[in-house]
Design a protein around this nucleic acid. Structure first.
Length: 268
DNA sequence: GTCCATGTTCTTTA
DNA sequence: CTAAAGAACATGGA
């Protein structure tokens, strides 16, 4: 569910309250959300102080005073929220930690998400491409040159560029006026420069509006995002393009629904 | 009952 | 061999 802007918003709201605080209690209600599976997560977390919380790609990264690091990936339906201590736990709450008096809950009905333990030595960059907000057009061009897949599919490949998902890939391609089926390696330097700029603009605006809430997503305080109201193609099939008025199309590309304006995003 | 979903990874195919 | 396509994962909502 959450892509880069949603994870960034969760990280910002969590970090505010948890950095510097100590983990006072841990309860793990499902072992199978933890990788590696044979780990004593409760023991490793207990009584540790949280020294840093940050985002890498779509991951919520956490560093403990022990030097150990781990991350939470929210998959499609994961939530990481701070809940009032007097309320019943909602169904599918797999991990609860009390940190500096806050009850932090990880809930994930579909269980595509989970906790990945890196310890002191695990490589947090493994299999991840560069951060879109730091990426230079030249680097994106070089990376896209190497694949013959459709540009839309390439943008979802986290080892090529890390943090975009289905919403922001579609929105970025629309903003750059590039057809989602264009072969990645065939984009011109001009087009890739436009795309690189569009990605940053779309992501920065989405972060400013605290992400997109379509169904599940809320930040750590339980607040919904507002960027869904500003989507220009995602979820707007059949509605008029806000630039030219043509009906927005929805196709399936690489198994994912893909939204675009056939008039603004020419295939050439 | 059917289809669809903000994601990733494993398997199969070319 | 490798890149790309497809299936699988699990649950809930329309």
């Amino acid at each position: 569910m959450p892509e880069l802007p949603e994870v960034q918003t969760i990280v910002d709201t969590l970090a505010d309250r948890l950095v510097g605080a100590r983990i006072e209690a841990v309860s793990l209600n499902r072992r199978d959300i933890v990788t590696p599976g044979d780990l004593d997560l409760v023991q490793l977390l207990m009584n540790q102080r949280i020294v840093r919380i940050w985002r890498r790609a779509k991951r919520v990264m956490v560093q403990l005073e022990s030097g150990d690091r781990f991350y939470v990936h929210l998959g499609m339906s994961g939530r990481l929220t701070i809940e009032p201590s007097d309320q019943n736990l909602r169904p599918h709450t797999h991990l609860v930690m009390v940190v500096g008096g806050h009850r932090v809950c990880f809930r994930d009905p579909r269980r595509f998400g989970g906790i990945w333990w890196l310890g002191r030595t695990g490589d947090e960059q493994a299999d991840l491409g560069p951060e879109p907000l730091d990426m230079q057009a030249g680097e994106l061009f070089d990376r896209l040159k190497k694949t013959r897949r459709a540009i839309k599919t390439a943008l979802l490949d986290q080892s090529l560029i890390a943090g975009l998902g289905n919403i922001y890939a579609d929105e970025s391609l629309f903003a750059a006026r590039i057809h989602p089926r264009r072969m990645a390696s065939r984009l011109t330097r001009d087009e890739v420069e436009r795309l690189n700029r569009a990605i940053k603009e779309v992501l920065n605006r989405a972060i400013k509006h605290r992400g997109s809430t379509l169904r599940d997503y809320v930040d750590a305080n339980g607040s919904r995002g507002g960027f869904q109201k500003l989507h220009r193609v995602y979820g707007r099939e059949g509605q008029p393009c806000l630039v030219c008025g043509a009906a927005i199309k929805k196709i399936i590309l690489g198994g994912r629904s893909t939204h675009f304006c056939a008039r603004c995003q020419k295939r050439k």
